[in-house]
């Protein structure tokens, strides 16, 4: 593979859900790239399309009603949107894996943990059952499960929430994938356990050089773990930046509002600043920027035209008319 070529390149992806009540525009014109070894964060509130975008990469969007209507997902020169289900099966769990929010619902309750992890090794690596099981135990050890030999013979309900999530991670990483997609992996866990799991993901990223896409509604999680961050709102990317810059100097009014709305533990307590209004209905497509009804800095142009992604600096893009020359407000 060419050195400069990104590991994963998503171009102009749009996903719709056609329902009886109308079409839900879940993702609109999404483009981003992921390099090997990266940790990319995707943040947004419920309904922003962050989960659908990752399901799109795995081709796990239920069809019907969901459909990728436009765009490309290029992985190792292949466009995943067009390949057959059979080819996709080769990639899923082998090259690209995913872990979900609620480990209890994503693990099979009637299969022992070790066997569940071994499954993907048997399927993708063609290993014999016994060898696969031994490797599964090894995998469990490397994700920090104590007594893996014993735990491998237990069922998911016998484990705690944090342990189950470790089993999920072991399963996802068994075939040493190039990309690990984590969809809110710690949302169902307690903070002290969350800290353990985030530490584990960081460690595995370094050790195995697995690129990670971290999807979360928790800006804190993303800020601590990720190098690069994408902020989504109503299915669009509205800001893309290095994590350092994004949280120090957010540009989009939505990002600014979101960061201010988080309660912080600081010496002087102030009332929280809020973003007025609610997220618009994803069935209605507006001509302008989807954030304008809630935006403090709204201009006439915002209501008429959707702003493009504007490159304000190297590695720094924002979808807001404020940052177009001529419309520029003070202070970028």
């Amino acid at each position: 593979m060419n050195q400069k070529e990104p590991l994963l390149n998503i171009q102009n992806l749009s996903v719709e859900f056609r329902t009886i009540e109308g079409t839900v525009y879940a993702i609109n014109d999404l483009s981003y790239t992921l390099n090997s070894g990266d940790i990319l964060g995707i943040v947004g509130e419920s309904g922003s399309g962050k989960s659908v975008s990752s399901l799109g990469i795995m081709k796990l969007i239920p069809n019907p009603p969901g459909k990728i209507v436009n765009g490309k997902i290029i992985y190792e020169g292949k466009n995943l949107v067009n390949i057959s289900e059979k080819e996709m099966e080769q990639i899923r769990g082998n090259d690209i894996s995913m872990i979900f929010q609620e480990p209890m619902t994503s693990l099979n309750p009637i299969i022992k943990c070790g066997k569940q992890i071994a499954e993907s090794l048997i399927l993708h690596r063609g290993l014999k059952k016994k060898v696969a099981f031994e490797q599964a135990v090894e995998m469990m050890h490397s994700v920090g499960i104590a007594n893996p030999e014993q735990r491998a013979h237990e069922y998911p309900h016998q484990l705690s929430g944090g342990m189950r999530q470790r089993v999920m991670i072991a399963m996802a990483l068994a075939c040493k994938p190039n990309i690990l997609i984590c969809d809110e992996p710690t949302t169902a866990l307690d903070v002290t356990i969350q800290a353990q799991i985030l530490d584990l993901i960081r460690h595995l990223n370094k050790e195995m050089n697995t690129a990670v896409i971290m999807i979360s509604h928790d800006l804190g999680v993303v800020s601590e773990l990720c190098e690069r961050v994408i902020v989504m709102y109503t299915g669009c990317i509205i800001e893309e930046s290095s994590s350092q810059e994004l949280f120090e100097n957010p540009l989009h009014p939505y990002t600014i509002g979101l960061i201010k709305a988080i309660p912080k533990i600081s010496k002087d307590r102030e009332p929280l600043q809020t973003i007025e209004g609610v997220v618009p209905n994803a069935m209605e497509k507006t001509d302008g920027c989807s954030f304008w009804p809630r935006c403090k800095d709204v201009m006439l142009r915002c209501k008429q035209e959707l702003p493009p992604m504007i490159q304000v600096k190297q590695d720094r893009k924002v979808r807001c008319w404020k940052y177009v020359v001529g419309n520029r407000h003070e202070g970028i």
Partner: peptide, 21 residues
């Protein structure tokens, strides 16, 4: 307190990670 992921980079101190559950 130290386990809570903080947005503010200055607040991201050395974290105490508790062992076990």
């Amino acid at each position: 307190l130290s386990a809570i992921p903080q947005v503010d980079k200055d607040e991201q101190k050395q974290r105490i990670i508790l062992k076990g559950e």
